[in-house]
Computed example of a mutant assay.
Amino acid sequence: MAEVVARRIAITTAKLLIQQSAGPTDRDYQRLAATASRVVHELTGLELDLGTLAIEGVDREGWAERNINSYAGLIERLTPPSRLSSIGMAELNAVALGALLGGFASKVLGQYDPAFAVGSPAVWMVDENINRFAAHAQLDAEEVALWVLVHELTHRAQFHGVPWFRERLLELMGQLFRASTISPIDLVGEVLARLRGLGSGEPIDVATLFLPERLRSVAKEATTMMTVAEGHAEWVMRQVSTEVIPHRDAFEKVIDERRQAAGLGKIIAQFSGIASKRRQYSVGLQFFQSIAEADERAPQRVFATPDGLPTADELTDPARWLRRMAKRTPSVRGA
């Protein structure tokens, strides 16, 4: 199959922008993941299957290269054959993708890759960023790594423990790719970037801005699903006992401040179409906080069946979701 993203050019572009002063550490992520997975399972009731999940510490360049391969594989899987032959498009996509990932490589602490197209699911922990974050916040790096793993393994639980969630999201992305005429990077970015927590603020949604009317409902559903996924992971992080992570409250404060920080990364995020909207982190988190206050089992019901997913309107009005779910026989997906 022809390349939609020229991987070598993308990797070279990313590395030109990455400032790297340290490689991966020898941090024992398997030990930390054992603790984090128990917390996630207790809070979500979902299976994670760590035995089939690679968890590794990487440097910034390694994170960017892994993402380029993952993005490129997904884009090539979903791009219609009629769009594979555009002269120079693979190189243009490569420069755009490499520049974006190179710019964000210093910001990402950890990422779960669901491996939609190539490879196997994995969690990548960016050691240098974790250590710098911990030093800046005057926090313990092991605690920071554990807290980040809780977030990433919650995504693992969502995509592994709820197969229909993964398949529906992939189906929606396929619809967008097959019908759209804009850059595939713009389309895939808005959906996937939230899994990495890139950027902050209220960016211009390039992908949705230029979509024809008939596709906006598809994009809206995909955005809603990822808002649910990110809000759920945020909520789980904030439920971790201080017996497990003693400085959890301090982490939350620093993370919230970090997401509101200004700078070049924020400007790029606002115009790239791959930015993660802080408002949607907030909306998703507030939704789960609200339903959990009403019913401690409610967050698990969201992932019990496809009908449990909130609509876009219900995300901003959790009481509406609670009323709808109250009319149904409770059904919780557990271990």
Rank of each mutant, 00 (worst) to 15 (best):
T181M: 11
I18R: 12
A105Y: 11
G88N: 14
D256A: 15
W147S: 09
R301W: 01
Q289C: 15
W147Q: 10
L264E: 06
A145L: 10
D205Q: 06
P184K: 01
E190Q: 07
L46V: 04
V39H: 02
D205P: 07
A33G: 04
A2I: 15
A2F: 15
S241C: 12
A135V: 11
T316K: 11
P310A: 04
E91C: 15
A269P: 03
R156K: 10
H136P: 10
R38T: 13
G284H: 09
R31T: 06
V95P: 09
T12A: 15
V39W: 01
R168Q: 06
A14S: 08
A33D: 01
R333G: 05
D186K: 15
F271K: 14
G263S: 02
G273L: 02
Q280L: 14
Q111W: 05
G174I: 01
V5D: 03
L322F: 05
G88T: 14
I268F: 07
P306L: 10
L149V: 07
S70D: 09
V188T: 07
A326M: 03
P121F: 00
R178N: 05
R132W: 09
D307P: 14
R27H: 14
V150K: 08
L53M: 04
G45T: 03
V148T: 06
Y71A: 06
Q111F: 07
G161S: 09
W321T: 03
K277C: 08
P24T: 13
W147M: 11
L92D: 12
F288L: 07
V332I: 11
R8Y: 14
F288G: 08
L46C: 05
R83S: 05
S37R: 04
A64Y: 05
Q239I: 15
G23D: 04
D313Y: 13
V218T: 00
T223H: 02
G51K: 04
A6K: 08
D49P: 05
G174T: 01
A145S: 11
H155E: 00
A229V: 02
A96N: 04
N129R: 05
E314K: 04
Q286L: 14
A262V: 11
P121E: 00
I11F: 06
L153Q: 07
G174H: 02
P212D: 12
G23I: 04
Q138W: 09
F177L: 00
G23A: 08
T35I: 08
A219G: 01
F116N: 00
L215E: 02
E128V: 13
V228W: 00
D313Q: 12
H41K: 13
L109R: 07
T242N: 13
A233P: 08
G174Q: 01
P246L: 03
T242F: 10
I204K: 12
H247L: 11
Y71N: 06
P318G: 13
G308W: 03
A105F: 12
M125Y: 12
I255G: 04
L169R: 00
E213F: 07
I11T: 09
L209Q: 12
L315W: 00
H160G: 03
D127A: 12
V254E: 05
E243V: 11
T329E: 13
L309T: 06
T181W: 13
Q289R: 13
H41T: 14
S200R: 12
F287V: 08
I87A: 15
E65G: 11
V144D: 05
L74M: 04
G102E: 13
R248L: 08
A6S: 10
P310H: 05
V148P: 02
V332C: 11
